[in-house]
Simulated scan of single mutants.
Amino acid sequence: MTATSPTPAPKAPARRFAVTTRRLALRRGADRPLATTVWAPKGDGPFPLILFSHGLTADPGDYADLLSAWARAGFVVAAPAYPHTSGESGELNILDVLNQPADASYVITEVLARLKGSVDAGRVAAAGHSAGGITTIGMFSNARDKRLIAGVVLAGRQVLASPFAGTKAPLLFVHGQRDKVVGYRDGRAAYDAVPWPKALLSVTQGGHIATGAAFDVVAATTTDFWRWSLYGDATARRRLQADATRGGVATLENELS
């Protein structure tokens, strides 16, 4: 089958970029500080924007290897530290995950305003790991952000019985089949509930966090997905299967066509 891009977009970059980082002191209201780390390609934009949400007790910097890989490929990545679930917060409140989709949408608004000219408001996506995956799913369902045109869910699941809503957007799910934190069955159920173009990368021996060869596969496959969904790169779409199954560490179910 022939894949089509979800949105018209400039040609995908043919080179890798050097990456710069900066920190934005954002705050939603009086009591929700959202210090946001931004990884950005060093080059002429505008580039697509990816909002990334971390897992419980994690920090944006914990994902630097993956997020900088995306930035090198031509994407601006903004990752807030959430006020009650990050390692920086000092006060863990798991239920506050329910407030994070609104935080994430606020950060998107602020980054688009503050980095105007460097980011493309018409090419915005969301991704997240674990609790951040739950946050990302919320942004495509009960707390739908209409600006989002694609998403990646890493080891995430649904916590509310809310259907995916709004304009269809391609989603890539990534889950370890031996994940003991968020069970593979729960991730699979979230994938099955998506009514739009979607794909599921299952890491056969993977746990909650991808490491080693599995990390390389996740980085390559997610980058292919971003290049297709945010730049319309049909070549990257055709690479998905080969990159996802490289080394035999993962399998790919693909309904993106």
Rank of each mutant, 00 (worst) to 15 (best):
D59Q: 15
T85K: 02
T37C: 12
A81Y: 06
P80I: 02
W39A: 10
A25I: 03
T37N: 12
L34P: 04
P83C: 03
A40P: 08
D96V: 05
I94T: 10
L34G: 03
W39I: 05
Q100E: 06
A64H: 11
P60D: 07
P46G: 10
F47D: 08
P33N: 07
F52Q: 04
T37M: 13
L51R: 01
L66A: 13
L56A: 11
A69T: 01
A30P: 13
G45A: 10
V76T: 00
R72W: 04
R23L: 13
V97T: 00
T36P: 15
A81P: 09
G74C: 04
G45N: 08
V97W: 02
A71L: 06
F47V: 05
F47R: 08
V97C: 00
E91A: 15
Q100A: 01
L24H: 04
Y82T: 11
L95F: 01
F75Y: 07
T57G: 07
R28T: 05
A25V: 05
R28S: 09
D31F: 11
W39Y: 14
G29V: 12
I50H: 06
Y82F: 15
T36A: 10
L51P: 02
H54T: 11
L92R: 06
W70V: 02
R28P: 04
F52N: 00
R32Y: 12
F52P: 01
L49E: 08
P48E: 07
L56P: 00
L49M: 05
